[in-house]
Computed example of a mutant assay.
Amino acid sequence: MKSFILKIAFFVNIIFALTLGVSYLSVHIPPDRFWYPAFLGMAYPYLLLINIIFIFFWLWFKPRRIWLSILVFILGINHFNDYYQLFPSKKFTGKGIKVLSYNVHHFTYDLSKKKSNSPELLEFLKSEAPDIICLQETRLLKRGKLSPASICDLIPSIHYYQLAHTTTYAGPLTFSRFPIVNLGEIRFKNSYNMVLFSDIVLPGNDTARVYNCHLQSNRILPDEYGVVDSLTTGNDPKLKETRLVLGKLKRAFVVRANQARILSAHIKKSPYPVIVCGDFNDTPVSFTYREVRGKLKDAFVESGFGTGNSYNGKLPSFRIDYILYSNLFEAHNFKRIKVGYSDHYPVTTTLTVRDNASESE
């Protein structure tokens, strides 16, 4: 009986090892051509955990069988590094450009209950005193404490701002301590999501193009999260609801793939080094992340610690908010700050200009 159980366990191990391997393909295969690996890419942390459990299981029962999961893990070590930073970087105490990116969810944590934390959120931005702030899903009001002008006046470190409308009263908003000398927009067909870019003159007369991104949302409604809970707890959800949620995820994967191509092409044509901030709505093991990142560096990978999970919700409860940058810069002190003012957590880093850095990247 023991031999039979171990054979079944090894068969299951093979399935999950192969599934983890297929999840690596999600960064290379565009979801609008073949969408299945995109789901496995989103499930990467769970697939990885199962394979790690199998490694310890075989160490106890049959050590020679640990090599299957170990080999698959090694093949995807780069993805592991994009997800987890096991050792903290040395704390940077010098001067630099502090960048903060935050999806503020219209300054309301729970839209269905209209639960607002806007006073605390604004006080948080003031206390962080960033040099560049990229906000997504803001309210673009003409007057009041949440208007762009009022927020600019509230934060002593900020002197300039730029905005764009995705709807009449909402859109991305970029604040800067330094002068904004040019601005532009990348609008996507049949989508309320967009990218705002600003050319900002940094200290030393270096100009950088700052992209404030909000890519296609999954549009999972609050009452549909019960399906997600059922899938993750092993309960049997209703088939119709499951198909609806999976259909929304599939459509979002497909739409984001095209948006990522457009954004990537725009970044490559930038006349200046770039800083790319925002809510990608996709995890590090995804075509969207890999396409947009390209040759850019990731502030979390370079100076973060832990997991960096930035979504304050159920799906995907992983790292979906990013700060990427050109080779001109070096990142320090990346932080994901756990404050409950939105359905996202803000991410922040300090950038310094590298000596003898190539601006071609």
Rank of each mutant, 00 (worst) to 15 (best):
Tyr102Ser: 07
Val255Phe: 10
Lys114Tyr: 00
Leu351Gln: 07
Tyr44Phe: 11
Phe253Trp: 00
Lys95Ala: 06
Lys113Ser: 15
Thr138Pro: 09
Asp199Thr: 03
Phe87Gly: 02
Phe39Ala: 01
Tyr84Thr: 05
Val210His: 04
Val276Met: 10
Ile275Met: 03
Lys145Gln: 14
Thr207Glu: 05
Asp32Met: 08
Gln136Cys: 10
Ile8Leu: 15
His105Ile: 00
Val255Glu: 12
Ile66Ala: 12
Trp35Phe: 04
Val99Trp: 05
Ser317His: 07
Asp355Arg: 10
Ala331Ser: 14
Ser358Glu: 11
Leu231Lys: 01
Leu49Gly: 03
Phe92Lys: 06
Asp298Phe: 08
Asn190Val: 06
Arg336Ile: 00
Asp131Glu: 15
Cys277Trp: 04
Phe73Trp: 09
Gly226Lys: 03
Lys62Gly: 03
Phe197Ser: 04
Met194Thr: 12
Ser118Thr: 03
Ile267Trp: 02
Leu121Gln: 13
Leu183Asp: 10
Asn312Cys: 03
His105Ser: 04
Lys295Val: 02
Phe61Met: 11
Val210Ser: 05
Lys91Glu: 14
Tyr160Trp: 14
Gly21Tyr: 02
Ile320His: 01
Val22Met: 11
Asp343Val: 01
Leu263Gln: 03
Ile180His: 00
Ser150Glu: 13
Gly304Trp: 01
Ser23Gln: 01
Phe80Leu: 13
His105Val: 00
